[in-house]
Design a protein around this nucleic acid. Structure first.
Lengths: 235, 235
DNA sequence: TTGTTTCGTCAAAACGCCGTCACAACGGAC
DNA sequence: GTCCGTTGTGACGGCGTTTTGACGAAACAA
């Protein structure tokens, strides 16, 4: 009987200095990451393509292809998160690095613990880390706690009967996406539901009374001829 | 008739020092952000909830509620990106800030340009939303997001009623190819449609009003004796 | 050029979608 | 059983959208 363990997030370190590389490996592995290593730009590019890393830590000054070029090359073909780790500390260097599409820019000498914290912060945005947000759905302005069956909108708790909660959750699971009424019926109440699609309208109306300012729907938006979507209000 | 412009990303700056706040506002606005300001934690929390910011820049040392508490409070109810901006520079301070769920941690004295670059980097990660995708159709100048039912032409969002959206999508699925009106009817509205082919003309006219410069159709081009096609000229 | 076909535009009419209301049906609490 | 909150339904009115027909302008063929 094999226990299923969530795969460790994989970090590719491209760094020519063996000592720095060893330090990084130590701290990263200790923090629960799998580590790939490359000593120069060409090897880095190959491993980045073939190793399927979840994040890249790049030194800028490298033998062969330098870090910036490597980052540009990767950006051209993937969205993999990139953190620069470098001795080049001028404002322009940092700005250039970030402008290329890097997610963070850390200067040497660096604190390994801080670097790990930053890597975590970047990955938090990129892919959900274990232990976070399991039984809840979050949007920019809303939290739906599925376990407690509690909704919070703009910091205010709202209590919702089951059907309205289910509908809101159905929408919130994919914010910004427009759903037809029949999709919503399925997502919220399941397949075996027999009822008019227009029932959705009634629920939407009642939800709006509770979470919107009268007359100005900003969260629960009608998409004419299609259905409804949940918008994160730009105002 | 009011012209629709893409809304500026909104940054809330919570900072008690007026001079720093003014500098931030200057640089942020110059870089294309809308800026909200608060002088203390309580006001910050209120604005964060009600102002709908896309990102928070938080000083840690604040009168009343401090920045860390403010960040924790926000994290409890939303996923809004947070960047700390603070004079507290120890390793532990940074790690704590990032552990709370901040996306970046910048220490004073800081370079405004670097801060802006970092804010951009964070927003680059934050903007796209997850969700099962029905996909989107992209041409050189146009994006049709089928999930959101949103059209973007030359970077400007255009809102389209269902028939016009369907017609545009029918054309965009094969750019440069000319379709007869009856092909378009089928591709856009399906087989069971009964209506005059000339209805297409009406839709094309309204589409042109929304996406073309008056008098010069460059995207929705008439192919005399055949029908219409979608052209993709380099802007 | 003239004649013919095709297209662009307009405005009104027809259509269908949505918000809302009131009430009926349902179900749990007691 | 009653009470009360929740959910489902049908109907109505308003309004945005779609369709249509007509007319003149433009494109084409001879």
């Amino acid at each position: 009987m094999s226990r299923r363990v969530p795969p460790l997030p994989k970090v590719l370190v491209v760094e020519d200095d063996p000592k720095t590389a060893a330090t990084l490996r130590l701290y990263l592995e200790r923090s629960g990451f799998a580590v790939l290593e490359a000593r120069d730009g060409a090897a880095g590019l190959r491993l980045a393509r073939e190793g399927g890393p979840d994040l890249l830590v790049l030194d800028v000054m490298l033998p062969g292809i330098d870090g910036l070029s490597l980052a540009r090359a990767m950006r051209a073909e993937s969205e993999v998160p990139i953190v620069f780790l470098t001795a080049r500390t001028t404002e322009d260097d940092k700005i250039q690095g970030l402008a290329i599409g890097a997610d963070d820019y850390v200067t040497k000498p660096f604190s390994p613990r801080e670097l790990v914290a930053r890597i975590r912060a970047v990955l938090r945005r990129t892919r959900p880390l274990p232990g976070e947000a399991r039984g809840s759905i979050r949007t920019r302005t809303m939290v739906l706690d599925l376990d407690r069956h509690e909704a919070t909108v703009r910091g205010r708790p709202v209590d919702l009967p089951p059907a309205e909660f289910a509908l809101l959750a159905a929408l919130a699971r994919s914010p910004e996406r427009a759903f037809s009424r029949s999709e919503l019926v399925t997502r919220a109440f399941g397949d075996g539901y027999d009822g008019l699609e227009r029932t959705i309208d009634a629920h939407v109306m009642r939800l709006r009374r509770k979470v919107e300012q009268p007359g100005k729907p900003r969260l629960l938006v009608t998409v004419f001829g299609v259905g409804y979507k949940l918008a994160d209000p730009p105002s």
